[in-house]
């Protein structure tokens, strides 16, 4: 398989702090998951790959060409950043159209491309609303829309599922898989194994600025299952949801924080499937946000580093 991203002895230093340390990796075409706990260096790697940062040492090439100082590369690259940053006063359509225009599209072509992209992420109905009035999930989706509007061959998605509710999470995962099937190459980061696993079996494991492992996700699956998975659910009625969840064998423990139910589960796949069903049925109240602290992943990384 040809590599779409090649890094050789790539390092990045922020003053005295190392963000990425001597990484040599070739990311193949197709979908690749970049997995690691917060602070592992995923975002630094993505910023280097998208030409926002210049390597301190080493090289990074995208589709065979350097990216830093080479704006033509962005014709074939779409980037969805992690940060929740927008021109809040613009509508979703205005924003995506304006960014598509920067790819050289005429006003009509940019408008059409933006509408298609918004439709793809199920946001066309809200296209004329100001981004400032969007929910967190809608903001995440409009970020995806601006990344795909110019039809790039390579998509770099930094934590694209962050803050999405279970249904949108599942839809977005399906969408990313479909893009992969349509021939796009995608590098997607997450600190949640089962999210990456749902999209691809090809992963890069990062820890402390290094690539710890690369290859098939199932090789570390057994390790991760030994550690209970923590899920934090923001919901309108936490106690009602807790009552529903307690009947489930997939929940090993449960505690409350203000407006939030924090669940530990030994079987995250089964639990998320159940949670999606609950969200769709409305039982247990409206689920606003699902997040997963990376405690369990950190434990696996600690184990991998020791061995």
């Amino acid at each position: 398989m040809t590599a779409v991203i090649e890094a050789e002895h790539l390092s990045k230093w922020y003053g005295q702090v190392s963000g990425l340390n001597d990484v040599t990796v070739a990311v193949p075409s197709g979908i690749t998951g970049l997995l690691g706990p917060n602070g592992a260096g995923k975002s630094t790697f993505m910023k280097l790959v998208t030409g926002q940062l210049r390597p301190s040492t080493g090289t990074v090439r995208v589709c065979g060409d350097p990216i830093w100082g080479n704006p033509a590369q962005y014709f074939r690259l779409g980037f969805c950043p992690e940060q929740d940053a927008f021109y809040e006063r613009m509508t979703g359509l205005e924003w995506v159209t304006a960014l598509a225009r920067l790819h050289g599209l005429s006003p009509d072509a940019a408008d059409a491309a933006a509408r298609r992209a918004l439709e793809t992420v199920d946001l066309l109905e809200a296209a004329d609303r100001k981004i400032g009035a969007y929910s967190k999930g809608m903001r995440q989706r409009v970020k995806l829309a601006q990344a795909i509007a110019h039809d790039p061959a390579l998509l770099i998605l930094d934590e694209p599922l962050s803050g999405l509710d279970p249904i949108m999470r599942r839809r977005t995962i399906r969408l990313i898989k479909d893009w992969g099937c349509a021939g796009k190459s995608i590098l997607v980061s997450s600190h949640i194994l089962h999210e990456i696993e749902a999209m691809t079996s090809n992963i890069l494991l990062m820890h402390n600025g290094r690539i710890l492992a690369e290859g098939n996700v199932y090789q570390i699956r057994a390790l991760i299952d030994e550690h209970p998975h923590t899920v934090s659910i923001r919901v309108g009625d936490p106690r009602a949801l807790a009552r529903r969840l307690l009947t489930d064998e997939d929940v090993s423990s449960l505690r409350f924080e203000p407006g939030v139910v924090v669940v530990e589960t030994p079987r995250p796949d089964a639990f998320y499937s159940r949670l999606t069903q609950l969200a769709a049925s409305g039982e247990g109240g409206t689920i606003e946000e699902v997040t997963s602290p990376d405690d369990n992943l950190q434990a696996v990384f600690t184990y991998l580093v020791k061995t």
């Binding site: 014709f75 491309a113 439709e119 793809t120 829309a145 795909i148 061959a153 479909d178 349509a182």
Partner: peptide
């Protein structure tokens, strides 16, 4: 989400080398 197909399909991907003109 409505479709798994890529959004635009406009294929505006010229060969790498230069971006758009400065004035434009």
């Amino acid at each position: 989400m409505s479709s798994g197909q890529p959004a635009a399909g406009s294929g505006q991907q010229p060969a790498a080398g230069s971006g758009q003109s400065f004035v434009r």
